[in-house]
């Protein structure tokens, strides 16, 4: 390997029950400005958790759900997230929804959306590249196209110690949805059941918000995931429950 590549400095913290991992390389990696940007990114994620956590009875989203707050009384980003979720419901013919079991639960939108907002603080670092992951959904930047891309391993949904693919990304986002370690947590909102046929969906896009939403919506659609993603021109990798993989190269649809 080339020795010209700047060393990568890594940080890890846990927020929202997820490991938040940051890799920095370049001028401010390991320096005070890099550390400050990392702290600012974490503050964004913690702030999003306080507003949107369905596990916190006092969060704005919980109070809105119980009718104790109006939308007007919520922080403005609540309307933005609900709008993204509602648009995704339309786009997915109802497979994606911000309500589950009669409760308001926009977590399918919040993770990618909040991480993208957090990354805005890292994007302010001059001469510094970053790759920020929140529980397996990530966004990265490389300023100089001549520098090597970030190499993103896509986890094998059947064996989390293995990879099914490697995606080199200079600048962009990679989001994966699938069956979680502790059982199915994504359901088709139309049926309330876990989707069948698909083990994981990985979507690559400029925006982590939209990559994450589309990965989740596609997974919720189950056997129809590939057709739906293809019609949207998505670049995606699907792993089926039988272990086979399907690559959608995007744009062809």
């Amino acid at each position: 390997m080339t020795a010209l590549v700047a060393p990568t400095v890594r940080h890890v913290q846990h927020v929202m029950g997820m490991p938040i991992s940051l890799a920095l390389r370049g001028r401010h990696a390991g320096g005070p400005r890099g550390d400050a940007a990392w702290a600012a990114a974490l503050a964004v994620l913690r702030g999003a958790d306080e507003v949107f956590s369905t596990y916190r009875p006092g969060s704005a989203i919980s109070r809105l759900d119980r009718g104790e707050l109006t939308l007007a009384g919520c922080p403005p980003e609540v309307a933005e997230v609900l709008a993204l979720g509602a648009a995704a419901r339309l786009d997915s013919d109802g497979a994606f929804d911000v309500r589950r079991d009669g409760r308001l639960d926009p977590s399918g939108v919040v993770k990618g959306w909040a991480t993208e907002r957090a990354a805005a603080h890292l994007a302010l670092l001059p001469e510094t590249d970053f790759c920020l992951s929140a529980g397996g959904d990530l966004t990265c930047r490389t300023l100089d196209p001549a520098d090597p891309p970030w190499r993103i391993g896509v986890e094998d949904p059947h064996d989390p110690t293995r990879l099914v693919a490697v995606v080199p990304v200079h600048t962009g986002a990679v989001a994966t949805s699938g069956t979680a370690r502790r059982g199915a947590h994504i359901t088709d909102a139309r049926t309330g059941r876990a989707p069948t046929g698909i083990a994981s969906v990985t979507v690559i896009d400029a925006s982590l918000t939209h990559a994450d939403i589309d990965a989740t919506a596609a997974f919720a659609r189950g056997p129809d995931a590939a057709r739906w993603l293809d019609a949207r021109g998505r670049t995606a990798l699907l792993v089926r429950t039988d272990g086979s993989t399907l690559l959608l190269s995007g744009g062809a649809g």
Binding site: G17, M18, S21, S133, G136, I152, E155
Partner: peptide, 27 residues
């Protein structure tokens, strides 16, 4: 590999995950 994209990366399972190994290697 620089980072892992996957659906199972939660704090509960982090210790035994590939991402954890990556982070440890770079810390």
């Amino acid at each position: 590999i620089d980072m892992i994209s996957g659906a199972t990366v939660t704090s509960d399972g982090y210790v035994e995950s590939l991402q954890s190994a990556l982070d440890q290697a770079g810390l």
